[in-house]
Computed example of a mutant assay.
Amino acid sequence: MTVNAGSSSIKLDIFTANQRLYTLRIIGLGQGEIQIRVTEPDKETVNATIQIDADQPIEQKLYDTLEQSGYLQNVDTISHRIVQAGPRSQQAETITDELVRELETYIPLDPGHLTRSLRLIDLFRKNLPGVLHVVCYDTAYFHNLPRVAQLLSVPNQGADPAFRRYGFHGLSYAYLQQAFQEYAGDVAVNGRVIYAHLGSGASLAATRSGKPVDTTMGFSPASGIVMSTRSGDIDPSLAWYMHTKYDVDEESFKHMVNFESGLLGVSGRSADMHRLLQEQDQHAGSRDAVALFVYNVQKAIGSLATTIGGLDSLIFSGGIGEQSSEIRQRVCQNLDFLGITVDTKLNSVHEKCISSESSRVGVHVIPTDESMVMCRLAKGIIGQKEILG
């Protein structure tokens, strides 16, 4: 089973070998009730609502529901996603008490994600002590970025090893890179590639010779391009201005840039790209939010292309990147100087390759699957344990 915990949602996938049996999405965390959506291959999605008392631990109630529903039967390995664990984030590993204590020291780096992830790890380890528990780091993919791409332009970086640009969505990029290799071959995947993971959280990454060279997210998942509710990169002086003029304190500012900004903040209406696209002709805020998102993605592609000496392939993924032909079309409109042209018809029907015959750059749409990577990493650790006996 894979456990992917977010600040307001949790996704669980249950596998046998490499075959997915169930997907459970738990949404509405932090509210009075949570919804569980269960999806099985070739079957309709089943929805259930669970009432949560104000003083009731959400994680325990969730575990009880999963156990009573039979979803935890025969689970022998649980693979947990950790978004941020500072310099520890190098490779998947078995969870131990010592590791948990170390991970707790990194909570200040990402309290929104890491706190819930650690609560879930503690819950599953206590209730399922005979199960192998594995942790997969979302930043591991970028651990060996070129040094210049790791640097932050602040003093005293050497005094704290946590001071660096990390990059995120690494599990997604690992999956996309392997999927692109299987689809297009070694020459393509080892060329100059930009992957665009465009979802509620959004980032882009550039690779050359199959290795990550740079990415848009840096020290935290709130950095980079505009996202659904996250601000992306903003001038640091904004925090001081809002504090002195509007008495916005540290916690309020942190909440604002993570949960009230991005598409939601610019539009004043919604963080949902689908809704904004529907309303953009009638509502100026929605129109501005969509335009800013497209503009940010275009700038990121142009910037990242310079880090890898040009561009051979552009990969769209994530909920927006996979599902919105309009966003893909608009992003690529002003990138003909890089050799990108899109076939409108192929794009409109969401073909895997949407570039035109005259395009010098291959433009592709590949669905991502972080849970599959977590499953494979857990299997790798199981294999190592079997070899070591």
Rank of each mutant, 00 (worst) to 15 (best):
I27D: 11
D97I: 01
S9G: 05
R360E: 08
F124R: 03
V363G: 00
N156M: 11
L238R: 01
A206V: 00
T307P: 01
S237Q: 09
G210W: 07
I320P: 09
A184F: 14
Y246E: 15
D13V: 13
L103K: 05
E104V: 09
E67C: 15
S355P: 01
G380A: 06
P146D: 08
L292Q: 04
G383A: 14
V361N: 01
A85T: 06
F316R: 08
W240L: 14
L123A: 02
A206H: 01
A271Q: 14
G318D: 04
F316N: 00
I315R: 03
D214P: 08
Q278F: 00
T307F: 08
H255P: 07
D110E: 13
S303K: 14
S69F: 09
V131Q: 07
L198T: 04
L152V: 10
Y246C: 14
I320K: 00
L24S: 06
G6K: 07
G380E: 13
C136R: 02
N334C: 07
V187C: 03
G167N: 05
I107H: 02
K245M: 11
D272K: 11
V248E: 10
I366L: 10
S8M: 00
G224A: 03
V361Q: 06
Y137I: 09
I381F: 01
Q84C: 13
V331I: 14
H283L: 13
R192E: 03
L388P: 01
S261E: 00
F293L: 05
Q329D: 14
I354Y: 12
A222G: 04
H143T: 11
A188C: 10
M227S: 01
S8T: 12
P108A: 13
K379E: 13
S231C: 11
R360L: 12
S209Y: 13
M1H: 07
S9P: 05
L109V: 03
T341Y: 09
M217P: 10
D369R: 03
G383Y: 06
I387D: 05
C375R: 15
H255F: 12
L276T: 03
R275D: 05
A206P: 02
I95M: 10
S286G: 14
S358I: 10
L62K: 08
Y166P: 00
G224W: 06
L151Y: 11
D312L: 00
Q384M: 06
P129G: 11
V290D: 00
S237M: 04
Q384T: 10
S79N: 11
W240C: 10
T307M: 07
A48M: 15
S209M: 12
I36F: 04
G232W: 02
T2L: 00
E67H: 15
A159W: 09
N144H: 15
T96A: 05
Y241P: 02
F180A: 15
K345N: 05
